[in-house]
Amino acid sequence: MARPVQYNTKIKTVEAPQGYSGEGFFATSFDKVIGMARANSIWPLPFATSCCGIEFMATMSAHYDLGRFGAERLGFTPRQCDLLMVMGTISKKMGPVLRQVYLQMAEPRWVIAVGACASSGGIFDTYSVLQGIDQVIPVDVYVPGCPPRPEAILDGFMRIQELVGQESLRRRHSDQYKALMNSYGIE
């Protein structure tokens, strides 16, 4: 008789990082472990303003399911999140708001610009639209498309996972990073 409960046997676990293992111990560097943990439990903050936000809704819901990548938990507060997903046109009126949200996030934080508008202003080369969010905050990954398909958003998300997984723990204290932040006027 078949069991009343079915188990998902197709679970794919993340590969362990390189290291030394022996009986009862496994040694590796902090960077790798923390990177692995962070990359697979990213808390995204959706900053959806327009059309790309609707595609993000599709990405989140059952068909494409962003939760598969460890991003099940959408934090709707910048304080708890570590990935800012900017989706849609950011106007000049919205620019300061976006910057404020970015500043409220705790380090380490990453930013993904989804769609042509967030990346470069897109077709809206107009007096009221910010020509790419990288004018006010630093961006890690750009996803092209108007709007990008959910697959493209997922791809951008996986690129972020790569970045997060490989990031050195010292990066945020480096002079280079501080110079980048200073170029945006962020202390």
Partner: peptide
């Protein structure tokens, strides 16, 4: 008389 484009670009 005012331009459409963003002048900062």
């Amino acid at each position: 008389e005012f331009p459409l484009e963003d002048q900062t670009r």
